[in-house]
């Protein structure tokens, strides 16, 4: 088959495969596993440019240029991340990344962001619905907002070694998963052995701030499926 020896065919294939991958990621919203929503317009721009490149390369296929071994090697390199992501099908950063990066248990932010976080608080029955980011921020800047209060919070389980205690983790992302900072809160739960590492859970309980450290005394823990957007921003 002559087409398989044509370099321009492989150039077209590279542009087409990346065009399809970016399109699928943006249509399914799965790009949020890797980067923040802020990047969506850039991804769209990339898709438009890739579609133009597909058009140009499809025109160039008519001109036969024999492929050499270097170009095959380049093609393999371009293919490598696409194959890898299809095989591994990642859904969110596991707790292994949190351990490597060091779990942050304190968070300080500016007064204006603190105010906007206060405005965003919702309730679920008697519980205040909070994120780990909100809890850590309030614990540092406005402890009276959460201390001794009933809250509900979601995150990933990291069991650790302490008896009756585990760490609830969420990743705070600024631009992409490469810069994700793990935030963690300790949870006291007597039936800890029922939980598994990497599991997504919803914790309902009472917050206690002891010597600046947050501890949740869990009343109830419910296993949940991972949210469509696994990160906090």
């Amino acid at each position: 088959m002559k087409i398989f020896k044509n370099k321009e065919f492989y150039n077209f294939l590279i542009c087409f495969l990346y065009f399809v991958s970016f399109l699928v990621l943006s249509l399914t919203g799965n790009y949020r596993i890797f980067v923040k929503k802020f990047y969506f317009p850039y991804i769209l721009t990339g898709i438009v440019i890739l579609s133009c490149l597909c058009f140009v390369t499809s025109k160039r296929i008519k001109i036969f240029k024999e492929i050499d071994v270097y170009e095959i090697f380049s093609f393999v390199i371009f293919l490598f991340p696409l194959i890898l992501v299809c095989l591994t099908r990642p859904s969110n950063l596991p707790t292994y990344a949190a351990l490597k990066r060091g779990i942050q248990t304190e968070l300080s932010i500016s007064e204006s962001i603190l105010r906007s976080l206060q405005e965003k608080i919702e309730t679920e029955g008697k519980y205040k619905k909070l994120t780990i980011k909100q809890i850590l921020t309030f614990a540092k800047s406005k402890p009276e907002e959460i201390n001794e209060k009933d809250i509900v919070v979601e995150g990933i389980v990291f069991k650790g070694e302490e008896k009756d205690k585990f760490t609830l983790i969420r990743f705070l992302v600024i631009c992409c998963a490469a810069d994700a900072t793990p935030l963690g809160i300790e949870v006291k739960y007597e039936k800890k052995e029922e939980l598994r590492n990497e599991e997504w859970v919803k914790v309902k309980g009472k917050v206690k701030i002891e010597q600046g450290k947050v501890l949740i005394y869990a009343d109830e823990i419910e296993k949940i499926s991972s949210p469509s957007d696994p990160y906090l921003y």
Partner: peptide
């Protein structure tokens, strides 16, 4: 998984 997520 971490490697693939950061790479992508």
């Amino acid at each position: 998984q971490v490697f693939v997520i950061i790479l992508f």
